[in-house]
Amino acid sequence: MTTDSVVTSFALVRAGATTHSTDNDQRRVPLTFRLTGTEAYEVTVPADPGAALPGTYFLFALNAQGVPSKAKMLNLG
């Protein structure tokens, strides 16, 4: 993944279910990452399937002030 600015953290946010008033599957999963080049990063999804259930997620990059990027949608299988 490449960015146009310095990133201090990454997180996945599970897409919400529109069929429930309470979404028990909603979660935010912090990701480990490493810098691989100038503003290029490699992120790692937790190996524990209970932490990041299969499904659709929004991937956010956050700067030092905690401001998130525009999300990228991805599917974990």
Results as ranks from 00 to 15, higher is better:
residue 52 A to K: 00
residue 10 F to D: 12
residue 42 E to Q: 15
residue 73 M to A: 12
residue 10 F to V: 14
residue 62 L to S: 14
residue 73 M to H: 07
residue 77 G to F: 00
residue 29 V to D: 13
residue 47 A to Y: 00
residue 12 L to G: 00
residue 64 A to P: 03
residue 47 A to I: 11
residue 21 S to W: 12
residue 48 D to V: 13
residue 46 P to L: 05
residue 69 S to W: 01
residue 47 A to D: 15
residue 13 V to W: 02
residue 33 F to M: 06
residue 60 F to I: 10
residue 9 S to E: 09
residue 9 S to L: 09
residue 22 T to P: 03
residue 70 K to R: 13
residue 39 E to D: 14
residue 12 L to V: 01
residue 71 A to N: 04
residue 2 T to S: 13
residue 58 F to V: 02
residue 10 F to K: 09
residue 28 R to W: 06
residue 23 D to Y: 03
residue 40 A to N: 12
residue 1 M to D: 10
residue 21 S to A: 14
residue 59 L to S: 02
residue 76 L to S: 02
residue 8 T to L: 05
residue 28 R to P: 09
residue 22 T to H: 06
residue 52 A to F: 01
residue 43 V to S: 07
residue 43 V to T: 15
residue 9 S to I: 08
residue 2 T to C: 15
residue 37 G to H: 06
residue 20 H to M: 12
residue 72 K to V: 15
residue 39 E to K: 12
residue 42 E to M: 14
residue 34 R to F: 05
residue 44 T to N: 07
residue 22 T to W: 01
residue 5 S to A: 13
residue 66 G to T: 05
residue 46 P to H: 10
residue 5 S to Q: 10
residue 11 A to P: 04
residue 7 V to S: 10
residue 75 N to H: 08
residue 73 M to R: 11
residue 27 R to I: 10
residue 37 G to E: 09
residue 60 F to C: 00
residue 40 A to K: 12
residue 47 A to W: 04
residue 52 A to W: 01
residue 17 A to F: 00
residue 54 P to C: 07
residue 22 T to V: 15
residue 54 P to T: 07
residue 61 A to E: 06
residue 63 N to Q: 08
residue 77 G to C: 00
residue 39 E to A: 05
residue 37 G to C: 13
residue 33 F to W: 15
residue 29 V to H: 02
residue 36 T to V: 15
residue 56 T to D: 06
residue 67 V to G: 01
residue 71 A to V: 03
residue 2 T to L: 12
residue 17 A to W: 04
residue 68 P to D: 07
residue 9 S to R: 14
residue 24 N to T: 11
residue 17 A to R: 10
residue 35 L to E: 14
residue 22 T to R: 07
residue 6 V to S: 05
residue 25 D to F: 03
residue 76 L to P: 04
residue 52 A to I: 04
residue 18 T to W: 03
residue 2 T to M: 10
residue 13 V to C: 09
residue 58 F to I: 00
residue 2 T to V: 09
residue 67 V to K: 00
residue 23 D to A: 04
residue 53 L to E: 12
residue 4 D to W: 00
residue 35 L to P: 05
residue 2 T to I: 07
residue 72 K to M: 09
residue 27 R to G: 11
residue 4 D to C: 04
residue 73 M to V: 06
residue 65 Q to S: 14
residue 40 A to C: 14
residue 1 M to P: 10
residue 1 M to L: 15
residue 20 H to L: 15
residue 62 L to T: 08
residue 3 T to W: 02
residue 59 L to V: 02
residue 4 D to E: 10
residue 33 F to G: 09
residue 17 A to D: 13
residue 44 T to Q: 12
residue 44 T to A: 15
residue 43 V to G: 06
residue 21 S to F: 14
